[in-house]
């Protein structure tokens, strides 16, 4: 095997390794791509600071709230109201009711999804129960707040934004830590 050949084999092997890594790199790349384009209606996983956005009173946006416990999640989980009409820029609070009808303690994680997907870029959450796992003792209930505003830059073709939360039972992966403010809602 000559030197030229070994170099080529080396390069090709490197390419193989690089492409394997690229497969994994697609995971964060996809998230970045989603953040930029709003594919899949993913909202930001981090809160935004409440900016002094200019309220655009000339426009009304209907926000639809969908809340669904996953079929293996026994909680009762619903928004206080199904629809809300807001002006872009206004800060609103929406409360979700969660009730654990079982006798065991359960930890829930809400997964948000916004439709139409692009509107997710203009839906800003200042505070949301979906940022952390929520702990609820058996038989208890709690109100889980969402504080949000709609960016006045929302393109004109959107008049309705649907925000859906699917609530999953993540008790198995529960790792309590100091950042979790869950229990203070629960007790």
């Amino acid at each position: 095997m000559n030197a030229k050949q070994s170099t080529l084999i080396g390069k090709l092997s490197l390419l193989v390794v690089a492409m394997f890594a690229f497969g994994y790199a697609l995971v964060p790349l996809y998230d970045v791509f989603c953040d930029i384009t709003g594919i899949n209606g993913k909202t930001a996983a981090e809160p935004v600071s409440a900016e002094e956005a200019i309220v655009d009173t000339s426009r009304e946006i209907t926000i639809e709230f969908i809340a669904r416990p996953n079929q293996q999640m026994p909680w009762i989980f619903k928004p206080e109201v199904r629809r809300m009409t807001v002006h872009p820029g206004e800060i609103h609070v929406m409360n979700y009711l969660a009730e654990n009808p079982t006798i065991r303690s359960i930890v829930g994680q809400a997964v948000p999804s916004v439709s139409p997907g692009r509107a997710a870029l203009f839906f800003h959450k200042i505070e949301c129960f979906c940022f952390t796992q929520q702990y609820l003792a058996g038989g208890k209930d709690m109100l889980m707040p969402l504080q949000f505003y709609v960016d006045p830059a929302l393109p004109a073709q959107y008049s309705t934004i649907t925000l859906s939360y699917t609530l999953y039972d993540v008790t198995a992966q529960w790792q309590p830590d100091e950042h979790d403010n869950a229990s203070e809602f629960g007790e």
């Binding site: 193989v16 492409m19 497969g23 994994y24 995971v27 996953n70 994680q109 997964v111 999953y168």
Partner: peptide
């Protein structure tokens, strides 16, 4: 050479999602 490693990557993700509690594709885990 360009795509078989990507297939290897994706089946590995399936493996870890199923047996090692990663959540590449599981909405519940993000």
């Amino acid at each position: 050479i360009m795509v078989m490693p990507v297939l290897a990557g994706v089946v590995t993700m399936v493996l870890t999602d199923k047996y090692f509690a990663t959540s590449f594709f599981d909405a519940a885990g993000g």
